[in-house]
Design a protein around this nucleic acid. Structure first.
Lengths: 343, 343
DNA sequence: CTGAAAGCGCTTACAG
DNA sequence: CTGAAAGCGCTTACAG
């Protein structure tokens, strides 16, 4: 079954034309007789011909490979990942979408070197969660490789090719929901890194609490060892003279830290403290009580970013930037029991 | 800065030798004068020469690309993934390791077609969690592509190239620990798919409870909608006439389902029910109470599988199969309070 | 030890 | 509309 795969010459011979004609027919280049073209296409199909990528690349410069550049992940001791689950769901979606469109998806380490990135010969890239003046973004620019981003580079307002979560709408609906549930003092736990996502959420939070005339407290959380930092931050907030009655924990693992800090103080979620997570996950849904969460929609973000990149590669001007919905799923952790049943 | 990158001809010219000599010097082929070689190498370095992958591939057949074939993940409605977090940590490690050794890592969709897989032109692959007579394994064999596996294909005992978790030792230490904590009836919730990992754990569990003279109950859990199935299974077990006093939930999300089922019945973890998860995660550590968990060591598994594959690609006979430690991290969820402080 | 030359499988001016 | 030929940047027999 490992018969050597057919080349363009085999197709040419079988169809009784030259390799030039085969190439033209298959790539829709030049003028070619309609009948000839369909015959060539049929022959190629019959023989199971698929162009050799290396050869095509060598001659034409295209590799049909794109890269996904995730932020630090994997074996990093201090993992700033907002949500590993979200990243993998995103990667899965992009992998499938890319392959469907005849692109292969390369997984590139976060600290890739310039040479390494150049060597792999990618046609384009998707940068996930760039920090301010992200090194990966600069590398891609130097190498002249087209790219789109999931969340923008907050230090580079000149780059429009990104998809972003709608933090404004998300914060508005979350604050509104919390107010409905009786919250007066709301605390936002936000990752202390240069992510545009975090910056957006922060601003949106401030605006929303102001609109609703609530007291808003922003607490930046270091991202070395997610759980403990969030736990510490929550502990501090809960021990304050006037403690918050609601906490929005932007990163998935933050929410768990908050829950632990609350439970150790005999504070009950949701009766004494309303809790909302900024990242939905299988764990948020399965926790006790189930944690209300904003849905980052990694599949949709991945799809949009891929689409944007492929437009770029096709020489088109994509619609950009794009905003993705960031909806709130209300669960038990933010429903006061006296109102229970209202969901 | 986008000066056209140097080719082997540029190096040859600069070093005053032929391209053949450059190729030989750089690839350690043939006999070559030591002085000449070092001069060529120095010149290549000075010019920043890096061989064009496409050209090398076209001629030599090597692509310096390997693929990671994860099981179903990402945008699948029913996600049988044991632990998305583990997969991403594994992928991250393999990506870094591959790039360090001049290989690029391709992320391949779980349902890749034969043609798609052939087209991408990979030198080798790592198959993660094959099911019995896994389709991906068969594809790779047909295409004559070397591969290693993380966990074996339980239907293919002829394939030794895999790394596996030490389920025997893990179950022994877990059962021993549970016995110490006073467990008498232990229930194992195991994913109901053809994963060798699950089969191993099941057998190891049976053997371990027998050795310790405990009552062992095995409950297969469907993997469509992880949390609910585990919840249902746990509910059933806990409502039985003689309910278990300890549950080992093999998949990470299973543990959350068990905790919820227990809590709804007024059963306290760990006082009324000891709980151990088969997959460690940020959520297991941050939960209340913190969940005891077996550590799947995705980094170590990924590293070993990559090493095995590269040995194979290098024409060597790797040490295989390999067994990776699967240690238990004891936390509050499996420590009876009357013994608290013993950790 | 060193080099000229063929060739991997395509794409693309260029001629006809 | 069609095809012969050059060439992308390497590796590898083969000769010297």
């Amino acid at each position: 079954m490992s018969a050597t795969r057919p080349t363009i010459r085999d197709v040419a011979a079988a169809a009784g034309v030259s390799v030039t004609t085969v190439s033209h027919a298959l790539n829709e280049k030049g003028r070619i007789d309609a009948e000839t073209r369909s015959r060539v296409i049929a022959t190629a199909q019959r023989l199971g011909f698929r162009p050799n990528r290396a050869a095509r690349n060598l001659r034409g410069g295209r590799t049909q490979v794109i890269a996904l550049l995730l932020p630090e992940f994997g074996n990093e001791p201090h993992n700033p990942a907002l949500s590993l689950e979200n990243y993998l769901r995103m990667a899965g979606t992009v992998a499938v979408g890319a392959h469907t469109r005849e692109y292969a998806l390369l997984l590139v380490p976060p600290r890739v070197t310039r040479e390494n990135l150049r060597d792999v010969g990618i046609d384009g890239a998707i940068v996930v969660d760039p920090v301010v003046r992200d090194a990966r973004v600069q590398l891609l620019e130097e190498l002249d490789i087209p790219f789109s981003m999931i969340e923008r580079d907050a230090g580079r307002d000149d780059l429009p090719w990104h998809v972003s979560l709608d933090a404004d709408a998300a914060m508005e609906s979350t604050i509104e929901h919390l107010e409905t549930q009786g919250a007066g003092r709301v605390c936002l736990l936000v990752p202390d890194v240069g992510w545009a996502y975090a910056l957006n959420a922060r601003e949106a939070f401030r605006a929303a609490v102001a609109r609703h005339d609530l007291k808003g407290i922003v607490v930046p959380v270091g991202v070395g060892g997610l759980e403990h930092s969030a736990y510490d931050a929550a502990a501090l907030a809960l021990d304050a003279a006037r403690r918050p009655d609601a906490i929005i924990a932007l990163a998935g693992p933050f929410a768990a830290g908050v829950a632990r800090a609350a439970s150790e103080r005999g504070l009950h979620v949701p009766d004494d403290l309303l809790l909302v997570s900024g990242a939905d996950s299988v764990h948020a849904r399965a926790a006790t009580p189930a944690v209300s969460a904003l849905d980052m929609q990694p599949e949709e973000c991945g799809t949009q970013a891929l689409d944007m990149l492929l437009e770029l590669l096709g020489g088109h001007e994509p619609r950009a930037p794009r905003v993705v919905d960031y909806p709130l799923h209300v669960r038990a952790s933010s429903l006061r029991r006296r109102w229970k049943g209202s969901e």
